[in-house]
Design a protein around this nucleic acid. Structure first.
Lengths: 211, 211
DNA sequence: CCGTTTCCTTGACGACTGTCAAGACTTTCT
DNA sequence: AGAAAGTCTTGACAGTCGTCAAGGAAACGG
């Protein structure tokens, strides 16, 4: 009845189911990738049957886009703690680098799925809007780190958010591939690379702060 | 046979056909991507019928790997001219940046295919060996540019080949996606980004060359 | 010239795909 | 309790896929 108690409207339950289905789908997608994850396989790895997908989603693509949007929401604040707790520039870099490594270790399937989808969006126009949106959000996320780093270091950022994201994303993607290939040392390499890269993202110290 | 005239051994003709088929397949793959390019579609866009694929290739995957290897061979020397003709550090950077932009304009389908395959290799182990090999070749290609740039500038390179490739690849990939989305200015942005990035790949000037 | 080898087409196979409709089961409301 | 709405399963559909075998066409050697 949508009274003041507001127990749970049908629409809420509907959305909850969508989220649960998408959550389950994300696991399968992360395991098989965009192309090889069929709706039946996705349903098999969930508590539902394959037909239910078209009750909650219009399309396979509708499901996929909903999934990646949901994934984005859980992923985009991953480094907020790093930013909030940092008190020195070097400490921020160290915590950031550690978190990047941790992300690769803990969430490799989700991130290879992200790169898979971004590549697919180069072919499939219907994916581009969602991909560009997520890309922008990730860029903002990275920029919060870089801007805080610049502030703590007392130096201005020398790169645009777009470039900073592009550079870090390049290194991250390389490390992810290396990690999936079980290459030794890629994670330590990534950590060292971030430590070396971050300073060059900044320019000369501000005049009011002599070095 | 196989006399001194060495007209053309059957094995040569066999290889030539393989190359022709792979060449045609690359066009279709660049248009549709790895997942959606079926053998029938590949054959339709060639002068052959769909059954011939299994005469020249053992597998679909065999064909794909052969294709990407062939693509690598044509692509890996793209910047050699830039390196050979450069006489000043700034001139090299300008020529390199221009060539990167030209690559995106002229060969976008081939490069989105490359990123597609590299993403797929994160899921499909059988693709990894070829992908890692090509990645290494591209890294070498980039490094020839950076090393020459360092030499012309009289300054040592401050990054490893791996990092230099990762950074440039990140920017390139971003620009490619932007270009395919018909975003205005991405190509000019890429040019400017390369101009700004290249100097930070180098360290302090050598002592024997005072600036 | 004929026979053999090489090359390629055609057609079919089983498996898998996204989609959807018919109906059963469950919940909710009156 | 009975009706209605919501939820989910089952089974089937029209395609497409990779693969392969049978056989025709062409090139080649004698």
């Amino acid at each position: 009845m949508t009274t003041a108690t507001a127990r749970r409207t049908p629409a809420d339950k509907h959305d909850e189911r969508r989220r649960a289905l998408a959550d389950s789908a994300l696991r399968t997608l992360g395991e098989l990738g965009y192309a090889r994850a069929s709706l039946r396989e996705i349903a098999n790895n969930s508590e539902f049957s394959h037909g239910v997908v078209h009750y909650y989603f219009h399309d396979k693509l509708d499901l996929i886009v909903y999934c990646v949007r949901q994934y984005k929401a859980t992923c985009v604040h991953r480094y907020d703690g790093v930013v909030a707790e940092a008190s020195t520039a070097d400490g921020l870099v160290a915590a950031f680098a550690d978190k990047l490594v941790e992300t690769i270790v803990d969430e490799a399937p989700m991130h290879r799925l992200w790169y898979d989808l971004r590549s697919q969006s180069m072919f499939e126009e219907s994916l581009r809007e969602a991909v560009l949106q997520i890309d922008q959000t990730l860029e903002d996320m990275v920029w919060r780190v870089v801007a805080t780093y610049a502030e703590l270091a007392g130096r201005p950022a020398a790169m645009t958010p777009h470039v900073a994201y592009g550079l870090l994303d390049g290194l991250f993607q390389q490390a992810l591939l290396g990690h999936l290939c079980a290459r030794e040392g890629v994670l330590d390499d990534l950590r060292a690379q971030v430590h070396r890269l971050m300073p060059v993202l900044l320019g000369a110290p501000a005049l009011s702060d002599p070095g």
